[in-house]
Amino acid sequence: MLQILGKTSSINVRKVLWTCAELGLSFEQEDWGSGFRSTDAAEFRALNPNAMVPVIRDGDFVLWESNSIIRYLAGRYRGEWLYPADPHERARCDQWIDWQASELNRSWSYAFLALARHSAAHQDRRQIESSSANWTKHMAMVEGQLECTGAFIAGQAFSLADIPIALSVNRWLDTPLQHADFPAVAGYMAGLAGREGYRDYCRNGTP
């Protein structure tokens, strides 16, 4: 049985949970992270020296880093429809997965911690405004891409890239800030509503 270590409120854990839903994979989940068992515990660090969730155990195989995990699961469990084998299609998918982790994540960090998590260490008004503006700029890139495809983030078919991107859009929508009018983004999220993984792990009230 596939084991997933990490709390459901983590956006990175939810990437893995949603991927499992798309692939029809059964799993056991253990809650680790803030509010649950500490990831600084020796037994967790033995699995992931970075002390971050998620971690998976697939038999004797252990893997951490959410984007590496979702790629592994798609490759291991016949998910070619989700993560295409064609080099061009896979590269487009990877492009958006990596952009979400490297650029989009950084754009929201300060504003999200201030406005959604109410962190006392993140209450500088100028930095909140700067981060919010940067976040909106990156969301405009998502809007532009969805206008181009008229469907999903990497093209005409749902792919692995839509999981981290939709989770990020959900985080943006659920954070109390001024939201620009992005009709393609709104239509995209409405179109995903029929997917079980989306209902269970994206629009589930957990930013």
Rank of each mutant, 00 (worst) to 15 (best):
K7Y: 10
P84N: 07
P84W: 03
T136L: 12
G79P: 10
E103G: 00
A154K: 05
N105F: 11
A85C: 04
L47P: 01
R199K: 07
Y201A: 00
E43L: 04
N204V: 06
D162S: 03
W135C: 03
I165V: 15
R171L: 08
S68T: 14
H179R: 13
T136H: 09
T206L: 15
A151S: 12
T149S: 04
K7W: 04
Q3H: 13
G75M: 06
C20G: 02
P84Y: 00
A154Y: 06
R92P: 01
L23F: 12
I153D: 12
R37T: 13
V169M: 00
F158D: 07
F152W: 14
M52E: 15
G194W: 00
L146Y: 06
F61R: 08
G24W: 11
C202S: 12
Q145I: 13
Q123E: 10
L115W: 01
N12C: 13
W18A: 08
W99Q: 11
D181V: 09
S34K: 15
E103M: 05
Y77R: 01
D58C: 03
R78H: 13
N67H: 12
N67C: 11
Y77V: 03
F44T: 05
F112Q: 09
G187A: 04
G197N: 09
I56P: 03
R203Q: 14
M189R: 10
N48E: 09
F112Y: 12
S132R: 11
R203P: 02
N134V: 00
L167S: 04
A21I: 03
D60G: 11
S102N: 12
Q123N: 11
Q123G: 10
S68N: 05
A193Q: 12
F44D: 04
T136R: 13
E196H: 04
W99V: 10
R90G: 03
A91P: 00
I165S: 03
R117Y: 08
Q100S: 12
F112P: 05
Q178Y: 06
L23C: 05
A85E: 14
I4L: 10
G59R: 14
L160W: 02
L115R: 12
C20F: 00
G33A: 12
R78L: 03
P183N: 10
F44I: 07
L25H: 05
I70M: 04
R90I: 02
C202N: 14
R90Y: 04
R14S: 01
